[in-house]
Write a protein that binds this DNA or RNA. Structure first.
Lengths: 250, 250
DNA sequence: GCAAATTTGTCCGTATGTATC
DNA sequence: CGATACATACGGACAAATTTG
């Protein structure tokens, strides 16, 4: 027993070394969004590799959303500001391939939204409260106009709450999961025969949630927000998955 | 007014078309994990592009974790089972570049873990309860051995709870965020002078959480789990961020 | 165990469309 | 408008790695 525990060596490709170096530079802040990478020809000189290898590395970096290159651009590839685009792609892929059910997605939205409300009730600013008022007013005005407008206002409300939570992870996951859910059933919601009634009910619920947030009652806001989302989406969730959703309603 | 609203055309690269087609095949289930893609030379024939283009597409697919190719493999690239590897990379990148604070990460862990406990209290099986017992026993046995063993058992407990929640998104996010948090402060925890006391306290708290889960009291288990995580990590969170954490303790 | 065949990894050269000055 | 530099894409070539008979 004893002796050094050797790790199996993995042969690391040349293009991976390039990706690692550029990622490291971006993570450490040496390369900031807006800055430019050297041209492909310069890079093949700096890394002592061929053009193909440089290009494969750039394709990977571009796929991760870190850089963007356009043909003919004399300044080279541009470092992109970080966006959760790739996060969304990964989660969307997960949802489809790994078979995430609508029930699980809605359940996760309930978790995120209720937590955001719990935090927002204590941390929200007056400006954010005003934003939520505006969003609900827009929801009210949109009932007669159409579902798209209503949905936009609804999204704005939840985004403001997520923002008021002060937690970026909650904000990002909220945005990602919502876009997946809406991508799955936006058409069904828009086509629901009782959608006007659903919208009016949703507005009432949002007003109750906002009142709790305004009063600083986090647990109440959290409970109401779960109920709000449950009532709005439960009709689209298979009956077999509804008990798991109700488990969040305590 | 009127006339068709033309969309701006974006020039789409050849390699992107290949990526799209392969992704579509994987999403639709036409290509399953374990199956092989044709060799690069076959692909250049099927897509009518050069090998460089095929390779750039394969690099992107590999970066997304969808396929893996090895040199000399006569069967071609292998379709990979979906793992949250890319999800973790995106989130880790986000944590570093976008400046996610330790406070936000711990806060998000509290949200995830408490929700998992809330659900697990209602949905757990007897086998999962036994697993949690085993994990706590391992934690107890590991106190005198070392932090690594304790951490492993602790992770096993939380993973079982996440699994018992029945929600894959909670499971994956739990795993991802935890690995980021531990990557940030595992060394500090291992070096803490009062780590033995912290471990013993943590075990007591875990026992209380498990008792609540066993009793089916979801809200209690959720509240206790938040307190458990808060007490365990608060010492490493800057004082300025602690109020936001306490906001979850109601 | 060995050698042939196949495949990937990498390099080089070239042609073409495009953006900038 | 032209000149220049760039990214895109193609095709050929060789070495390293792997499987297979």
């Amino acid at each position: 027993m004893g002796g050094p525990r050797f790790e199996p060596v993995r042969t690391v490709r040349a293009y991976e070394r390039i990706v690692e170096q550029v990622e490291e530079a971006i993570e450490s802040g040496t390369l900031c969004p807006g800055q430019r990478l050297p041209s492909e020809r310069d890079l093949m000189g700096q890394f002592s590799v061929s053009r193909s290898t440089v290009r494969e590395a750039l394709r990977v970096l571009q796929a991760r959303g870190l850089v963007r290159s356009r043909p003919g651009d004399p300044h080279g590839a541009e470092v992109q500001p970080f966006t959760p685009t790739e996060l969304r792609k990964s989660m969307t892929m997960l949802a489809r391939v790994d078979g995430l059910s609508l029930g699980e997605l809605v359940q996760f939205r309930m978790v995120l939204d209720s937590s955001a409300n719990l935090l927002a009730a204590r941390l929200r600013t007056d400006e954010q409260l005003a934003e939520m008022d505006t969003a609900i007013a827009a929801m009210r005005a949109a009932v007669e106009v159409g579902y798209d407008e209503f949905s936009t206002a609804d999204v704005a409300f939840h985004d403001t709450v997520a923002q008021a939570s002060g937690n970026k992870l909650i904000q990002i996951c909220t945005e990602v999961v919502r876009s997946i859910v809406l991508g799955l059933i936006a058409d069904k919601i828009a086509a629901a025969p009782d959608r006007v009634a659903l919208m009016r009910q949703s507005i009432r619920h949002h007003e109750e949630v906002l009142a709790a947030v305004r009063a600083g009652d986090g647990p109440l806001a959290a409970r109401l927000s779960r109920r709000t989302m449950y009532d709005y989406y439960v009709g689209y969730v298979p009956t077999s998955e509804r008990p798991a959703l109700r488990a969040l309603l305590e």
